[in-house]
Design a protein around this nucleic acid. Structure first.
Lengths: 204, 204, 204, 204
DNA sequence: AATTAATCGAGACGGTACGTCTCGTCTTGGT
DNA sequence: ACCAAGACGAGACGTACCGTCTCGATTAATT
């Protein structure tokens, strides 16, 4: 009795609007309550959805928050500002702006903390957030190379290692500045950091 | 009438042994259960202490974990290995080793996450962990200066800013590498990172 | 749109079996532990029910015990033994037998004590126990009147007052004998009490 | 080397004022909080005394409340009003007045309830309250006999049984009226009850 | 006057139960 | 087959008292 070709199963299809509403409700709850006081019952209520609907789509709080937060980082862009230094400053500035938003601050570190004991969650974070944003480093480098600010690529493996290192340094420094040291990543700080990073890159 | 100057307060004094037992039990619970499944009732039971004793001394789970984790970082030393590069590699290596221990991994990020919504907790982390370990940066720099590897100090304010920046970069990069990217900070990575950092420092 | 008239409310309906199990468990706990050592957690465990289920249905220990004890008194019957004296002796004997059971002894006085400071509880006791059993007095009187042992009813208000008085005297005397004086209400005592009561009734 | 005859032990003697203060504080707490919310810590604080002092003198809450309540019933008097009926009405009225006071209402029934599972407490209640007040029945009867309202005593054992019965009926009826039926034992009720009681007594 | 010993206040201690909250699952009837 | 509603078993939360225990400080009677 299966009419269509693919497994378009019978019965009422899942509401597409529900996913959007749930993720938005999750971010709203993160803003108001923070991660530890966020409850799935509350998210369901905000989204106008039953708890069962929520559990049907996400295994639990951690995975839900990862998805809700991941969307925030997709806003990052790498605008061409003419020089490598300016490009780096621009993207760092955008990154700092996202980390200044409470829904990101609260959620991101919490799921990272949880991920230290949950391999599946770690993988989810890596694929949804980390690897997804490494595009910025790769793109930035190739653009700098086109401008002649960096020497042409040599060993691809070495290339990957350097990209990973740069990503850890950039993301780590901004996160540590804003969340651990709890001081603003303002323009002065960003300029200082960029000078240090590019200096290191030229030497290495 | 109170005879003495300060309040050698009346009543039975608090047991000093209890504090030690509680912090050790907290670390043990972090290893076994991780932050989110750690319960204060369980910690109390492990420490052979009543829940009330625990609540009498710490306001809650977050503050307890901060204190339990802070002690771990006091193990950090800055041994003189003859050159700035070797010194940095040494301390980064120790730092990475601590972050490889599950009681640190689980606890540290979680309290940072909580601190995004709790000013008092943020201050506790800062004074117990962050500021406390900046000593390493200061000491390393002065040692390098004595060796002539760095120019003598000029502006003290500028000096402080640089120390903060270096601390954010070092701590942030190692944390991001081990917890977010979830890859080991092995000797290869440490050498690469140190080269980048020192290159940047010389330029800046 | 709600189709039916009254709120056949949505959601899973409450388990009817739980109520029965909880009241039985309450009586069992009263027998073993008495009122003051009875805990709602223990009752829930005995009934194979979660604490929340219990709190969803009763506001607290007092109300639960009232309901558990009230059922005991519904066993009282007024068998026709041929004369008013024999009827009274019969029902007093049954009443004494109930008060000899530990689940009644423990619970009844305790909730009466609590009710001195809780109007709602007082009303609950009155409707579930006191007024409910006054039927025995009314029925006994009408039966005696049919036999010609008592004069026909005159003033209905006066009638009600007398019924209340008789109920207080009978219930009070038996309770005081068994619980305060703490001596058994055996056949000798019951005969003596019945003679005194009926003597007074004929005069009054 | 004990000099004196009795064991007048050395050391600081117990404060006599403390007992008075504690019993008064207990009654005050009964009025404000009732039995179930009365805590020994609170009583100690009201009495300006340490908890240890209180536990040194009473085994627990129940015994303390018995002693605090027992003093209330010592106020009962049997004034000579000229006839048995008037005497009974007088003492019943006093008894009802005491039971109208919250410190008696709250405490009395609670300790009776507790006593159903505590033999030592039951004995304490009996000796401090019940037997102590049976004097009223004995005195009332002998006075009535002197007036010729009752026949002279015959069998002493039978005499004791009757006194017990009368005490149970009087105390039980008043308690039941005021605490269980929770209606006032006003003059109308007292007159009705006295008529019933004396009618029964003359017949029996 | 010095000694002795039980009392006193204060308050921390190991326990236990409280009543509430959230979890993730399981029934309902309705769409 | 999906949905909203809401009851369910489970178990941690942070608080309140329990009755006991250490403290140093009093306070009389005995030396």
């Amino acid at each position: 009795m299966q009419s269509s070709t693919r497994g378009r199963s019978a019965g009422r299809p899942r509401s597409a609007a529900a996913d959007t509403a749930i993720l938005a409700a999750t971010r709203a709850a993160l803003v108001e309550l923070g991660w530890s006081k966020l409850t799935l019952g509350d998210v369901a209520a905000r989204a106008g959805v039953a708890k069962t609907t929520l559990y049907r789509r996400w295994p639990g709080k951690n995975e839900l928050v990862v998805d809700a937060v991941a969307e925030l980082f997709d806003e990052l862009r790498l605008p061409d500002r003419g020089s490598l230094a300016a490009d780096v400053e621009g993207v760092v500035s955008q990154f700092a702006a996202i980390l200044a938003r409470p829904e990101a601050r609260s959620g991101l570190m919490a799921v990272v903390a949880e991920s230290t004991r949950d391999e599946a969650l770690r993988e989810r974070i890596r694929s949804s957030i980390v690897e997804r944003q490494k595009r910025l480093v790769v793109e930035g480098k190739s653009r700098a190379r086109a401008r002649g600010e960096l020497p042409p690529q040599t060993d691809p493996a070495e290339e990957g290692r350097t990209a990973d290192l740069v990503f850890d340094v950039v993301a780590g420094a901004v996160v540590h500045r804003t969340l651990v040291s709890a001081e603003p990543a303002d323009d002065t700080w960003i300029r200082g950091f960029t000078r240090l990073l590019l200096g290191g890159l030229r030497e290495a």
